[in-house]
Design a protein around this nucleic acid. Structure first.
Lengths: 193, 193
DNA sequence: CCATAAGGTGAATCGGACTCCGCTTGTGTT
DNA sequence: AACACAAGCGGAGTCCGATTCACCTTATGG
């Protein structure tokens, strides 16, 4: 009998299945814009009970966090690729616009991204940190190429983007968001281009 | 018997007193950072019952809106003065920083300002519109002086500021907010200074 | 000083997140 | 193949805060 109390033994088959169903269902719901769906309905649509939902996720917020960790992963994965294929400042610009695009996917998704970007909730700490790190990478590359000002942190930029994405759900918001992003980006570049 | 059904006859004395007490109490509570105080407690501290609170304000949100309409008024009033005493682009810069300062007054206040700036809630429509108009004025002056780019609207800028103010309640947030604002402002100026 | 409608009250309702406990089932063992 | 039991599950019930409503109180104009 080994006593590894930390990393937990593998989940039971049905448990893994249910957890997966919850994540998938929640994802669909959020993508479709029903961001304010209650836990009861999420559980029902996933074919389990609220009790099960709460066995897997401490709170409603924790479920949302789990869903969007995936999205964030995708976003962060783009960082390296962008830096590979574009000049640092252009990579940064494209990444910022990518953030807007992701917010555009769905209202629910945007709200989650906002939560990640805007709140101080420890629940989103992980996602937030990784996003900030991606931005730090992009900024650092720009600074090294002296095309981006050096007094900005990824965390700060993340906040600003959060605000911009928050404007979703207005007519033509996406165009506006891109516009603001462009302005912000202009502000980021070193004075004389 | 005149039938002016719209503008309503003057409130009864006790009604006005209670309404005033509610606004004052709510203001203090929000300023002190207890932004999540329940209606029950707000009413109790104001010396009335919840019923009375709801007689004067349709929802909890409506009360908050009423409280902050005052703040917004103060902010908007500063517009003319700033334009009087500073170059248009400088007036704009100062106004943006003023927004940050106001958000700094208190967590509750900041949250309300955010609601005004970020949501689409019709409840905050009025406040939002007036803020956007103030910004439009400042932008227009800058455009006329050719020191500010002409493709930005007050509404868009308001959103961006909302995001920035949202970062309140983090260590050193105010400094960060000012920094972002500065970057945004740099982006607003016409290319060749 | 009365009539009356504006205003006030607070117990009850409603809605939604979260908890609890008895029942079910996967899994590892013999 | 049957058992033991810990991991899981269901879903009624609790909690809590916003909102409502039927009834009582009191300014106010005549």
């Amino acid at each position: 009998m080994e006593m590894m109390l930390s990393t937990s033994r593998p989940l039971r088959a049905d448990a893994r299945r249910n957890r997966e169903a919850l994540l998938t269902t929640a994802r669909q719901i959020f993508l479709s814009g029903e961001a304010d769906t209650g836990v009861e309905e999420i559980a029902r649509k996933a074919g389990v009970s609220v009790g099960t939902l709460y066995r897997h996720f401490d709170t409603r917020e924790a479920l949302i966090e789990a869903v969007y960790r995936q999205e964030v992963d995708g976003l962060c994965a783009a960082t390296a690729e962008l830096l590979d294929e574009h000049a640092p400042d252009d990579a940064l610009r494209r990444f910022l616009l990518l953030l807007v695009d992701h917010a555009a996917i769905g209202k629910g998704m945007a709200e989650a991204l906002e939560s990640i970007m805007m709140t101080d909730s420890p629940v989103f700490d992980d996602a937030r940190t990784r996003m900030a790190q991606s931005l730090d990478q992009l900024l650092a590359a720009g600074v090294a190429a002296t095309t981006v000002r050096s007094d900005v942190t990824g965390r700060i930029l993340l906040r600003a983007m959060g605000g911009i994405c928050e404007m979703r759900a207005t007519d033509g918001w996406q165009q506006e968001a891109q516009q603001i992003t462009a302005i912000l980006f202009d502000g980021l570049r070193v004075a004389g281009h």
